[in-house]
């Protein structure tokens, strides 16, 4: 066997994203073991579909968290809800309006991200407080605009989000595409370097000529735009926008970043890990549900597993 290949294999556990994928494989194996391998394909397809939603919001959150301590976007659920509500209301089930509807969702994202940034920059409010209070505004706008009524997505959009292409769910393809683009931006573009520099030492970055405020604005706006996009697809996937549709995704968006091996202190992030974390978040719950454990045990186990993975991933001798 090629020596460099062996070296690479032993190197794997030192990759920050390795543990999330390893745990996902274990959870998948444990679940299918229960049924002697039956249902494996179904579980894999469900995991790939649902993980896509978590991965897309997780990528946005990852860029924000990379900016360093105190940077987190708590307005993701409300932005998802507002974008989905306005877009579905605008489309009103009309096939011809699918693309303009997407435009509406993206505009909501631009607006929400811009507003979040304005609060942080102009009013000098800490990001946690700014995005949290802005989220009340977005949620109230969503309530006010449609009073919680569920509007059906256009048929063609519903079919697209639940459909698949050569056996791979469409949502997975979109999630992977966004992940690849994010990877290129983060690892291969000057902007990615700036984001990391911002997170490692904002003052040093500013002094060395990084346009820090542009970096921060673009980061918060992309997080909101990705949240809006997820809201648009999730609402089409699940048969309509609901006021509480984003609630789960606040915790998930942060969890996938942490599980995926990105540094919660900022400055160092990791795109493949987001997908690993997203798959794991779905598979853990499925595994514990399949083993019939009660809600209490399930929450304790989920927490323990997350702590275990974060501990393993941040262990000694971490590869860069």
């Amino acid at each position: 066997m090629d020596k460099s290949f062996v070296l690479k294999l032993t190197d794997l556990p030192r990759r920050p994203w390795f543990w999330a994928f390893a745990a996902s494989v274990l959870a998948f194996g444990a679940t299918t073991y229960l049924t002697d391998g039956r249902g494996g394909a179904g579980l894999l397809s469900a995991a790939l579909t649902f993980a896509a939603f978590s991965a897309i919001v997780g990528l946005g959150q990852m860029f924000v968290i990379t900016l360093g301590p105190g940077n987190v976007d708590l307005s993701i659920p409300a932005t998802m809800t507002l974008a989905a509500t306005l877009a579905l209301k605008f489309m009103h089930g009309e096939t011809a309006l699918v693309l303009p509807g997407l435009g509406v969702a993206l505009l909501v994202g631009l607006g929400a991200g811009g507003f979040n940034y304005a609060l942080i920059r102009l009013l000098r409010i800490p990001p946690i407080i700014a995005t949290l209070s802005a989220s009340f505004l977005y949620q109230s706008l969503a309530i006010w605009s449609n009073r919680g009524l569920r509007i059906k997505p256009p048929e063609v959009l519903a079919d697209f989000t639940t459909g698949s292409f050569f056996g791979i769910p469409n949502m997975t393809l979109i999630g992977l595409l966004i992940a690849v683009l994010s990877w290129i931006v983060l690892e291969r573009s000057i902007f990615g370097r700036w984001v990391s520099a911002f997170g490692q030492n904002t003052r040093a970055a500013r002094l060395s000529g990084v346009p820090v405020e542009v970096v921060r604005a673009v980061t918060y706006i992309s997080s909101a735009v990705l949240a809006s996009l997820t809201g648009y697809f999730l609402a089409s996937f699940s048969g309509g926008a609901a006021l509480n549709m984003g609630a789960e995704y606040l915790l998930i968006s942060i969890a996938v970043v942490v599980i995926g091996g990105s540094s919660i202190a900022g400055g160092n992030s990791n795109v493949p890990g987001i997908w690993g974390g997203a798959l794991l978040m779905f598979l853990i719950v499925s595994m514990l549900n399949s083993y019939g454990l009660g809600a209490g045990v399930r929450l304790i186990m989920t927490g323990t597993i997350i702590i275990g993975i974060v501990a393993a991933a941040s262990g000694k001798g971490r590869a860069v």
């Binding site: 049924t35 499925s286 549900n289 399949s290």
Partner: peptide, 10 residues
Amino acid sequence: QKAVAGILPS
């Protein structure tokens, strides 16, 4: 939808 999709295969 998500929870049911996860438990159905087993």
